[in-house]
């Protein structure tokens, strides 16, 4: 599944591409929304591992504008519910992710990102 939680962990790794290689940009994607079990403790525990701006930008790119531009210091229930939805319930099923630096295209098919590189592209 390419949910935004996973998108937030993926960077381009093509040969020579080491700066501005994150976050990958979505291209021609189709998305599905699927309900997931809400666990505020998980969200609070995972928050320190999130690149916040990348998440907010990706969510906005997919039409979800509920997240604040800055990660809030105090988290309330409404915020956590919005975070839960953005991170865990939006599934990118088809399309691609494109490196903002080298324009390498990583396809997404059946909800699975293919990050493999051709032999000459491996660093």
């Amino acid at each position: 599944m390419v949910r935004l939680i996973t998108h937030n962990l993926l960077a381009c790794h093509a040969k020579g591409c080491t700066t501005n290689n994150f976050p990958l940009q979505f291209k021609d994607v189709s998305i599905e929304l699927r309900e997931a079990e809400f666990n505020p403790e998980f969200l609070k525990g995972f928050m320190p591992r999130i690149e916040w701006k990348a998440l907010v930008d990706a969510a906005r790119q997919l039409g979800d504008t509920t997240l604040p531009s800055e990660m809030p210091e105090m988290v309330d229930d409404e915020f956590l519910k919005n975070l839960h939805h953005a991170l865990l319930e939006v599934h990118v099923e088809e399309g691609a992710m494109v490196c903002p630096n080298c324009n390498h295209v990583y396809p997404v098919s059946n909800g699975i990102p293919n990050m493999l590189l051709a032999e000459h592209e491996i660093a």
């Binding site: 962990l9 990050m115 493999l116 590189l117």
Partner: peptide, 12 residues
């Protein structure tokens, strides 16, 4: 994720 070992994930 389809990738070799931890490629594309490692930095993050």
């Amino acid at each position: 994720v389809t990738t070799s070992l931890v490629s594309s994930l490692l930095p993050r």
